[in-house]
Nucleic acid binder design. Sequence first.
DNA 1: CCGGATGTTCACCT
DNA 2: GAGGTGAACATCCG
Length: 263
Amino acid sequence: MPELIEVEYYRRAIDKVVGQDVVDVTVDPPAYLRPSGSDPDELASLRSTTLTRTSRRGKLLVLHFSEGSHEVHTLGLRFGMTGRLLIDGQGPIERLEYSSGKNDPAWDRAVIALSEARVSIRDPRRLGSLELDATFAGLGPEASTLQRGELANAVRGRTKAIKAVLLDQALIAGLGNLLADEALWRAGIAPGRSARELTTDEHEALVTEVRATVDELTTRGGSHMGDSFPLRSADEACTRCGGAMVHTTIGGRSTWSCRRHQR
DNA sequence: CCGGATGTTCACCT
DNA sequence: GAGGTGAACATCCG
């Protein structure tokens, strides 16, 4: 799952099982536990704790576990491109999800067995991960509430492309490849522009469009259902201005933009 | 058969 | 330190 939108839906789904006790937490393969080299046996420290709350920044979902009134551990969940959350075998946002075809229980890479529910990450490509005692350290400000000053901070002195800044989770947390393209398309900013060269007006436009895009897609229910989305095809014209849609690679990611109205 | 895909991390360059 | 590239993960889709 990309983008913070789906992760927020997952967070809300897990909120419904807050209050339950942990029976066991497991990963398979062991490398699904990060950072690499972590010992899966350490997950045993979660047994008999209580899931007391959830939190999220960007695409990182964090579960908080307590003993009595004392928080003793957290667990970070990352979904990568292809990880889905299942609760008792059910995907809370099934209709939004990547996998249209096969759905193999063997792809359950992380399982959190609670007293009355089973939470798992089903991830065919293993691009997601689990992290014991994860924190938000190292993540930039939340994209869905991005402020002008936060964007100004993120781009300050950076020569790399504005799209690469939007995708860098340490600078701004939560935007994925599709959302970054959409926000830039809406703001009329070419994705390859050097970040530090954006004007104050462009900062304003971009902050507005990042938030609007996240808001609209959250309301609508996910990032795959856009009807105003910039077409990811060279065969059709920009739905806003009729210009040619062009494909490039920026920050190592596939990028679509309109040659005419994105400047 | 081949290449690319909503993500992240790491190694290796410049 | 900044930033770019490519590989890796494993599967599906066109």
